[in-house]
Each structure stands twice: as C-alpha cells, then as structure tokens.
Design a protein around this nucleic acid. Structure first.
Lengths: 165, 165
DNA sequence: TGAAAGTTGCTTAGCACTGAGATACTTTGT
DNA sequence: ACAAAGTATCTCAGTGCTAAGCAACTTTCA
C-alpha cells in the first residue's frame, strides 16, 4: 500500500522535518502519473506511425466540427503549446498529406487547417485503440472512483482558470 | 462549472457518438493539469536560475540521505527519464559546481553523485518557495479533498505498477 | 481617416530529451 | 577459472519544444 511518492514524503520527513511537503502528495503523483500514461499512449500511437503531438492535432480537428477544420490559433488554445510548435506540427502533417492549409477567405492573416481523407481515415483507425488503451489504464479504479477523480481534477482545473474555450 | 475537457467530451459526443470517450474525463484532465502545474513551477525555478530537470536532481539528492549522495542509476529510477538524460543533467550541474561525480569505491562501473555546499545552499533556498507555489496551486481544494485526491492518484499509480523503490 | 495597438502565423536558435549503441566492469553458472 | 549474461554509465544523432522576434494584416479609437 505505498507508491514512490510515499517514499519521497517519508524522505522529506527525515531530512527536512521542518518543511510541510504535503502538497507533493497530490502534485508529485500527478506528475508521475502523467509521465506513465504518456509513455503508454505513445506506444499505441507508434503502432500507427504517429507521435503524441500528431495525434493531438488530428484528434482536435476530428472532433471540432463536421468539416474537421480549425485555425492554427484554435489548435494552439486546445493543446497548450506555443505557436511555433503548432507550425511545426502542421508542417509535418501537411508533408504526410494528413492535413491541408488554405488561406482564410475572411481574414488576410488567417489560415484554415483541414483534415484530408487520409487524415480522417488514420485518426478514425487510431481512436478505438486509443480509447481501449485509456480504458485499460483506468482499470484499477471503479466507475464511481473514476467519476469522483474526474470531479476533483475538474475542480482543480477550474480553480486554476481553465475554461471551456 | 465546466472546464476545457467538458467541451472536448461534448464535441466527441457530437462527432463520434458511437465512441465511449469517458476515459478522457480523467486522463485528459490529468494531462492538462500536469502541463499547467509544470508551467507554474517552472516560473518559480527560473527565479533561482534553475530548470525543472535540475531542481529534480538537486531535490532528489537533498532528500535521499544525510550525505546527499546517490548513483546516476538511483536518480534515473526516481525521475523516470533515460540514462542519457541523467548524464546530461549531471554534466550541467557539475559544470555549475552544484554536484560532484566520484568513482564508486566498491563498483568499478559505478559513480557517486554528491551535492556540493553550493548545491545544498541553492536547493535549500528554493525549497520553501517551491512548496509555497505548490500550496497555492492546490488552494482550490479543501484539505479533505486533497487527501481524497491523493488517495485516488495513489490507487491508480499502484495499479500501474508504481512501487516505493 | 490614420496611427497605434493587437492578432495571426511563421522563422530560427538553442535546449533537453529519447533511443540505439559502445565501453567497462561485475555477477552467474558450470 | 572462465565464458556468458547482466549492469552502470556515457555518447551521439535525431527530434520536438520554447522563446524571441518578424511580417502581414485587422481592429480600435481619437
């Protein structure tokens, strides 16, 4: 009944008993889990010749609307990376023929990114296995525990200013 | 009462109602939170001329034992990065005079990494502000909510094989 | 209407990580 | 005692990100 973070907290208690290291019980685990989950999801993406960044873009386009189309700024907001990262992700996806970039009709600065047929086929092929992988990662939690956990995480996200956007 | 992940789930419900996207309620939030928290902690580290990777190494050495000493392999286990990453982190810290590398006395292959006086001073200066930052990130949750959240995250970590190690 | 401020997407340099592989040493099993 | 397997650390090429800055365009407001 102990994970790596329990050890870390114990060590802090011995070496720096004057400090209150309790926030690490949440944030240390959060970081560690995110790393483990990422590594597992990456393995699934790799089976389809994808990386996490490409999946992120394709999935965001796929769910956004019936046209599977969005601006780079919209992709940036959704993925929380910088504009430079979005440009490079789109460069790679465009080179593989999975998305297209077209100048916006209304805004001279703007670009419209759209999933190609190949892109749509690929993301629709990966999605079911992706969700199976995610499901299996959560197998250690009951449905009720998952919902409670999701609620706590949402409360925390909202307290940090996360919005629907 | 809605965060970005609520929007994502809604969009999947519209574009792919056949899929069960519910795992994203937990894992999507986990990823998003980890990114937000990382960015905030980074800002604090930067005030002390540190990055997250360096803080990670210095803090691990600080809490490990009274000698503040560990092998690269031990650091690797704790931080979940590859051996190549540890080598490069140590190169940087050694160049700044914050840690030393000495050949192991018992194992010809081994190396012993130890915090220098400067390294100890630095990490002890950063730790209090780090914990304050973490505390403030969790301000949106009550003590009971934090404990419950930490428990759920530990259950999940253990189900994925995380050990005290 | 025109200047200032803001927005959008792209470019580039620098950085830190991964993954594969090399080297040196230790442990295991016969 | 010795070969085979295992372990510890480092090297290096490739990759993807950030941060800063730029150019083109739009919005705001006096």
């Amino acid at each position: 009944m102990a994970d790596h973070v329990d050890l870390v907290l114990e060590q802090w208690g011995e070496q720096r008993p004057d400090l209150d290291a309790s926030p690490m019980a949440v944030l240390g685990r959060l970081k560690r889990l995110a790393q483990l989950v990422d590594a597992e999801l990456r393995r699934n993406f790799a089976r389809h010749d994808l990386d996490s960044a490409s999946f992120d873009v394709l999935a965001t386009l796929r769910r956004s609307n019936a046209e599977h189309s969005l601006t780079p700024a919209g992709l940036m907001r959704s993925s929380m990376v910088t504009s430079g990262a979005i440009t490079q992700r789109l460069d790679r996806l465009e080179a593989r023929g999975l998305v297209t970039r077209a100048p916006s009709e209304t805004d001279g600065r703007g670009v419209q990114v759209t999933l190609t047929d190949d892109g749509l086929r690929l993301i629709d092929a990966v999605l079911p296995t992706h969700l199976e992988t995610e499901q299996s990662l959560l197998a250690g939690l009951s449905k009720a525990e998952r919902e409670q956990l999701a609620d706590s995480l949402r409360t925390l996200l909202e307290s940090l200013g996360d919005k629907r956007d």
